[in-house]
Design a protein around this nucleic acid. Structure first.
Lengths: 341, 341
DNA sequence: CTGTTAGCGCATTCAG
DNA sequence: CTGAATGCGCTAACAG
């Protein structure tokens, strides 16, 4: 039998309300009785019942984390960041990876509807109208979104600066390596992060006065296999690009495979650029030139933002930008002007 | 304002007890009123309050997952497996990655003490006496452990057959590739999985009548840097091994780096064997010869076991073995007998 | 400063 | 089959 405040009230010859006060640092309580009660509570190894407290206080000290589908080391870092901040704020994290049997919408509604969580962090590739509606219900649970699209107002969003990341690295390789023929393998069609990267890529080309034939834009899926297939198509073109900008590291790894299959070398025959700076990018050979995302930071920022909302009910929607950086691997190299690869 | 059973009771002109019955498929209820109530509940978009229900039923439908520290793609797979089974059993998963500010013991005690979870899945490198004590408290929350050590009775454990995995792959490369000089980079000292792998390794050498000089056994830490350093030491030996068996894939990747630094080639100059068959192992070049672990399966099995315990209170402690497999990459190759590498 | 009372939302006795 | 009453463990008024 677990000990309750009644048990310890009895043993201390006080009412159980007094016990509650003593244990919650209530201002109006004598330090003498408080000490006595604390001592007895300790002896009896008392732990407050989480559910009872939640029921009356109408807050669970739990935040829900909804993931599109967990895979790769990307998400672990996010979870880690969220968990760290949540813990230091006295919150627990409950995860729901949506899969075939459970949609994102279902996860959210379950979390919020049953009052199981105080807030929700939503990590999703795209924000559908349905989702907007669910989240937007006034007076409902606070939600923070981690997504590439920051143009949606009225929502708290932590977003990676995909545009700048793509622009910077492409601009860099153009100016420093003299590349002029750059192809791109896009991410999933409806993925906002993927879209932003594509936009940044195009802007960099345009600002540098470079052409972009349609055949150098291939659809991908953020997976390794998709990258491999897309790369093969690029390699079989008559007008081959000099370097391939893959929408993420995973697809860049797919490029490595395809290029190897074709008996070509990186960066000698063709360059490769990735995005994410995952663990993987440093392990493949040659090390990948890619865009760094402080993933751990993303998780921390999202959790911080949510905790802030929880504390400050009437807080204004906030958009937090996460900046990226350039990682110079060895998958690109200077091209001598006037010579073609 | 969220709708409660009282709201719908009022609207249906019944007592709220009847509503409770109708919504919980109670046997003694007329299908007419049941239908009426269900309909109204639907209209009012009623969702039962999680905390209230938990409080009275004394079960939260939450299982706690304690992780040593989340990193790499290994854990994501486990979480995924656990979450899938948990979800289909109507449970939620709350994660706690222990870090500097929070010990494993603290996580467990918090989960169990506050009656926040119905059961706990513990993924830990080693089982300390302190942990045994905490878990062992009779009548306490059911716990399932994921760990390399299965020799601890009285506990429910899901364990990877590390011994067999190591034995099999070492035996294989000896018999098929004629290797005779095999070194090992161990995992963390107190890690049970690491220990079992070492044992399997030694047994395979012994059964094949091979020697194992002390200098071929190096301590590692399961991280890439540790693998790199350990490998460097092996490569600087006068009596070099022909192949290095790294305690896990991460350290094997470290070996790749060191070997490259030394200007040697894999498997031409030296072979490498890993353990885990992580995503990474297929992406590095050459693909790693390693031991496959069905990680997703581990998560699923652990969750299934826990749910079973939850259903069957007087269920006998169970040890579930997860078998491993051999993945033949290209990091080892046949050595011609009579010639040294 | 402390005791008494009420009630969070729900499941579950006990009557009828 | 249904209604009324009780309590899960705790916090928060309200008195004293």
């Amino acid at each position: 039998m677990k000990t309750t405040i009644k048990d310890i009230a009895e043993k201390a010859n006080v009412s159980f309300a007094t016990v509650s006060r003593a244990l919650n640092n209530h201002p109006r309580i004598s330090s003498a009785t408080k000490e006595k009660i604390t001592k007895i509570a300790d002896e009896l190894n008392y732990k407050p019942n989480f559910n009872a407290r939640s029921l009356v206080k109408k807050e669970t000290k739990i935040i829900g984390l909804v993931l599109p589908e967990i895979q790769g080391d990307f998400f672990t870092e996010v979870i880690k960041g969220i968990d760290q901040v949540a813990h230091s704020g006295g919150y627990h994290v409950i995860v729901a990876s949506s899969h075939s049997e459970r949609s994102i919408a279902e996860s959210i509604m379950s979390f919020m509807g049953e009052s199981m969580v105080d807030g929700v962090i939503l990590m999703i590739p795209a924000i559908s109208d349905q989702l907007k509606e669910i989240i937007g219900v006034s007076g409902s649970t606070p939600v923070v979104i981690i997504n590439g699209n920051h143009e949606i107002e009225d929502f708290d969003i932590v977003y990676i600066d995909n545009f700048q990341g793509a622009y910077s690295i492409i601009d860099y390789i153009i100016k420093n390596y003299n590349y002029t023929k750059i192809a791109h393998i896009k991410g999933p069609l409806k993925n906002n992060d993927a879209l932003e990267r594509f936009e940044g890529f195009k802007a960099a080309l345009q600002d540098n006065g470079l052409e972009l034939p349609d055949e150098w834009i291939i659809n991908g899926d953020f997976n390794i296999k998709g990258g491999e297939i897309a790369c093969s198509r690029l390699l079989s073109l008559r007008n081959k690009p000099e370097v391939i900008f893959a929408g993420n590291d995973m697809m860049a790894a797919g490029c490595y495979r395809a290029i190897k299959t074709y008996g070509l070398s990186i960066p000698g025959d063709i360059g490769v650029v990735g995005f994410d700076h995952t663990f993987l990018s440093e392990l493949i050979s040659p090390p990948l030139t890619t865009v760094h995302i402080p993933i751990f930071e993303v998780g921390k920022k999202a959790a911080s933002l949510l905790l802030e909302k929880l504390k400050n009910k009437d807080h204004q929607p906030n958009q937090i930008k996460i900046s990226t950086g350039i990682i110079l691997g060895e998958s690109c190299r200077k091209k001598l002007v006037g010579k073609s690869a």
